[in-house]
């Protein structure tokens, strides 16, 4: 290990401090008694005596339902994106076909569309399909934005799979789809995981569709539920922060575990397109 450089160490600590502080502050605020919150001096450390705030946040709000809905949306978005993306990713990587360039470009173009731009026409479509106020509608809207990214990432991974492996399977009489599912998919499992994480986070974080397409409180997601507290005054600040913290921490912890794959996936396949 290198020598200890005080300046370097201080700089690293400063960067990490900036990165982590806002979430720490969210946590401290959630565990600050109301009277202290508005005192002259801010309280810099959490008071553990305030832990019941979390019980209140959990059972006093609709947080449980929101989180459950968010999980459904995030998992659904992930599953749909992966299922839809595997075969086109394979086709882009391995097959020649008419309109391939156009297909690839169209996938890329979708990355430039802001969600907010499609809110109005999608609202119209969902009204006709009776998909308003359904989690399925949110999944369909979200996956439309993640499928192209996932496809590009998986294409990058399939590019790296040696063709000879497939050849062997083909000589053994496997169909092309059989080869993709039985041979290619297991080989790109790490990238598949990275793509899944990206899709999951998209679904977990998504706000504008969930805000516009869901009016029934029963189907609200956590992002919209939490957003409804911003600028609202009747719920105590520490309860709001507790709700925010409960919504944030699982995502952050999950990400810390899987980030190694995500970075590899993002930098190898996805961004080459």
């Amino acid at each position: 290990m290198a020598r200890f450089h005080p300046f370097h160490a201080a700089a690293v600590l400063a960067v990490l401090g900036v990165a982590v502080f806002p979430l720490y502050w969210m946590f401290v605020t959630s565990l600050t008694p109301s009277d202290q919150l508005f005192a002259d001096r801010p309280q810099l450390l959490p008071s553990l005596a305030q832990l019941p705030t979390y019980i209140e946040a959990w059972s006093g709000t609709s947080l449980r339902h929101w989180l459950f809905n968010s999980i459904i949306v995030a998992v659904g978005t992930t599953a749909l994106s992966i299922v839809l993306a595997i075969l086109p990713a394979y086709a882009l990587s391995r097959m020649d076909f008419r309109g391939k360039l156009l297909f690839g470009f169209a996938l890329f173009l979708t990355q430039m569309l802001p969600e907010a731009m499609l809110v109005v026409p999608l609202y119209d479509i969902f009204t006709k399909l009776s998909l308003l106020n359904t989690l399925l509608g949110l999944i369909l809207a979200n996956a439309a934005f993640t499928v192209p990214v996932v496809t590009w990432i998986l294409k990058g991974a399939i590019d790296a799979v040696p063709y000879e492996i497939e050849e062997a399977a083909r000589i053994d009489g496997c169909s092309r789809i059989g080869i993709v599912l039985a041979v290619v998919v297991p080989l790109i499992a790490p990238t598949l995981a990275a793509a899944a994480v990206i899709a999951f986070f998209h679904g977990w974080n998504e706000y504008v569709f969930a805000q516009t397409f869901i009016s029934d409180d029963q189907w609200r997601t956590a992002s919209v539920g939490l957003a409804s507290f911003i600028g609202e005054l009747s719920t105590p600040v520490h309860t709001v922060m507790a709700v925010g913290f409960i919504y944030t921490v699982p995502a952050v912890v999950f990400y810390l575990f899987v980030q190694r794959y995500v970075v590899a996936g993002m930098t190898s396949g996805g961004v080459k397109g």
Partner: peptide, 19 residues
């Protein structure tokens, strides 16, 4: 740890910074 902000949901970021 440096990736923590990237993993935090935008709505949560908006909430804490607004506060």
């Amino acid at each position: 740890l440096v990736t923590v902000p990237w993993a935090a949901p935008p709505v949560a970021a908006a909430l804490i910074f607004t506060w």
